[in-house]
Design a protein around this nucleic acid. Structure first.
Lengths: 200, 200
DNA sequence: CGTCTATTTGAATGTACTCAAAAGCGGTGG
DNA sequence: CCACCGCTTTTGAGTACATTCAAATAGACG
């Protein structure tokens, strides 16, 4: 499937053209290296044990990234929506098996670029390398903030913050997964919601 | 104070020379741009609200990086020892005020390089830029793993893992700070230790 | 040696968990 | 279009475990 400028999220175009100064020609050329990957709801994009060999941009849909604890419970690290990049960052860098799972929560359309292709392009165009550093830096910042949140806020506080800052999570993600994200049982989240609705 | 090759942690030299292919001359030249900063025990290297304008390598000593929760409790994100880099990564990148505190737990000797100086060097020598990407990538990986740990392991499991993988934490860090790292009260960690010692 | 802080121990409390079951909802096939 | 099935969410009751408050002991530092 051919990817055209019109079919993709405007933010994707802007990131390359406005933020990293790709010319229109450079960007259109870059686009030819991307492929479209569609996922059905509940399908996995990545599983622990896989080696991550590509970068993936969510053009449409949403996913959850989770790990398993010792009892086999799924613990969700984050949800990703349109204009996010997903995958296993460490596995991509080291080319060793990853530890995360990434699963579609809705039907998804991803734009992917293979690692070896990307590395070739990065040699030709230093803007690609800058863009990668930027992406890693952003991921590091996001993980850092997430860790701070988990350590400083109660599940209730984190839920209320989510209501304000990421309402799409509440709209698009089922309760059980939000509970796994907050590290509480679904029953507890149900009671928490009831408590909150009474206050309003 | 002049920094000589002999005075610094061997791992520092190896990272630049073996991993990033600096020649002896390149490395010795780079060294002239670093400064030594010493911290007394309990002194802060960085405070929330500061802008991070330099990178710092721990040549000797250890630190804790923490944030404050809504009640003003100090929540420790991680401890850092010899051969770690400390600071506020996001603030360094964005040059906006940071949210972390970094405090010396022992008398420390840090090797620091100013941000503007580093950026000038990175333009001259692409290996510097590679090294920065590597450092950010490592930080992202570390944060990701830390987040996974916090989400999948109980305080007791995390304590036992620490015994195996980072015994220096138990040796060098007082109980109250380990408790703040595990997100439990000092009393609970004291009881936890008692429980564990009975099992052995 | 004395003071201040860190750690340990005890008892009571509260909150989220577990187990269990009912109600609600969505999707599928007749 | 409706009925059924499976999965999700809600509700209830009892339990376990970390927390809180309080006090004693131990340890560090001048």
């Amino acid at each position: 499937m051919v990817i055209t400028r019109e079919k993709i999220d405007k933010r994707f175009v802007d990131l390359f053209e406005s933020t990293f100064g790709f010319t229109r020609e450079e960007f259109d050329h870059l686009l030819t290296y991307f492929e479209v990957l569609t996922l059905k709801k509940k399908e996995h994009y990545f599983r622990a044990g896989d080696v991550c060999r590509q970068q993936a941009y969510i053009n449409k849909g949403c996913t959850r990234t989770y790990v398993l604890d010792n009892e086999g419970h799924e613990r969700i690290l984050f949800f990703a929506f349109e204009d996010w990049w997903i995958g296993d960052l460490e596995s991509y860098y080291t080319q060793k098996p990853g530890v995360n799972f990434v699963q579609a929560l809705e039907d998804c359309e991803l734009l992917i670029i293979k690692r070896d292709l990307f590395q070739k392009l990065a040699l030709e165009n230093p803007k690609m390398q800058q863009w990668y550093t930027y992406k890693v830096q952003r991921a590091a910042n996001a993980m850092w903030r997430r860790l701070s949140e988990v350590k400083t806020e109660s599940p209730e506080e984190r839920y209320l913050n989510m209501l304000n800052t990421q309402p799409q999570v509440i709209d698009r993600v089922p309760l059980q997964h939000i509970a796994a994200y907050l590290n509480i049982e679904p029953q507890s989240l149900s009671r928490l919601r009831k408590r909150i609705s009474k206050k309003i």
